[in-house]
Simulated assay, not measured.
Amino acid sequence: MNQVDKSMKITLILTTIICLLPILMGVFYYKELPNQLAIHFNDAGKADNYMNKPLVIFGLPIFLAVLNLFTQFRLVTDPQKANYPKVLLNLFRWLVPVISVGCMTYIIFFALGKDFHIGNIGSIVLGILLIFIGNYLPKCHFNYTMGIKLPWTLNNEDNWNKTHRLAGFIYVVGGVIILLSVFWPTVYITLGVIATIVFIPMMYSFVLYRRGI
């Protein structure tokens, strides 16, 4: 086994273990937790959807561990994986484990009465993530797993490069807007930014395709 394969195997094992770690927290607090745990929160940070305790404590981390295995498999089997920016590769390798720990910690603490506003936390994390990804999208060269995978970007490498340069700028601007929305909390700003960062690169890529790029 070469050094790269060994590193990938270690990362796979570590990320999967981290995805499952919240089960230990859930077991530790199991008797103190109510039978129904909140799993979704509205714009005001109030719980509006619940799930049975065993499904949350055991089911969600297991589901995220399986999702992590699928993500790792996609990343290492892409024929164009040499084109990944190293920073984005590491981000996507560790994204699911961080989501597992972060979401499960919040769900358990919320159920224990340690409440804090999930909306602001979500906006800050999403804004920083968009700015971070936006800075590296232009460096994400043609591949089949990471980036903006549209019929037109996958059909032409120039289309891919131009679309990702524009998308990088839009992601950064969108991230800044979402960060600022913490001072004027409303779900419509986040939804508007998400719609924009999806729609504009898609239409731009299509226009390039119609122009023969």
Results as ranks from 00 to 15, higher is better:
residue 39 I to S: 06
residue 96 V to C: 05
residue 91 L to M: 13
residue 58 F to Q: 13
residue 48 D to A: 06
residue 59 G to C: 10
residue 94 W to R: 11
residue 91 L to Q: 04
residue 20 L to Y: 03
residue 69 L to W: 10
residue 97 P to Y: 00
residue 67 L to F: 07
residue 50 Y to D: 08
residue 38 A to Q: 05
residue 55 L to I: 10
residue 10 I to W: 04
residue 89 L to M: 11
residue 16 T to R: 05
residue 12 L to M: 15
residue 78 D to S: 10
residue 78 D to F: 01
residue 22 P to S: 06
residue 46 K to R: 09
residue 82 A to K: 15
residue 80 Q to M: 13
residue 50 Y to C: 04
residue 61 P to W: 05
residue 84 Y to R: 05
residue 44 A to R: 08
residue 21 L to H: 04
residue 52 N to T: 14
residue 88 L to H: 01
residue 63 F to A: 15
residue 10 I to C: 08
residue 18 I to A: 09
residue 42 N to R: 05
residue 83 N to L: 10
residue 38 A to K: 02
residue 88 L to D: 02
residue 60 L to M: 15
residue 51 M to Q: 13
residue 53 K to Y: 03
residue 75 L to I: 15
residue 11 T to W: 11
residue 43 D to Y: 05
residue 36 Q to D: 12
residue 97 P to N: 06
residue 56 V to A: 11
residue 24 L to F: 03
residue 19 C to E: 09
residue 15 T to Y: 01
residue 71 T to E: 10
residue 85 P to Y: 04
residue 79 P to G: 08
residue 64 L to G: 00
residue 20 L to W: 05
residue 55 L to Y: 05
residue 87 V to M: 12
residue 44 A to M: 08
residue 33 L to Q: 03
residue 56 V to F: 03
residue 15 T to Q: 09
residue 24 L to W: 01
residue 59 G to V: 07
residue 92 F to A: 07
residue 63 F to M: 15
residue 46 K to I: 12
residue 44 A to P: 01
residue 99 I to F: 02
residue 30 Y to K: 04
residue 11 T to Q: 15
residue 71 T to L: 12
residue 31 K to Q: 14
residue 40 H to G: 06
residue 58 F to D: 13
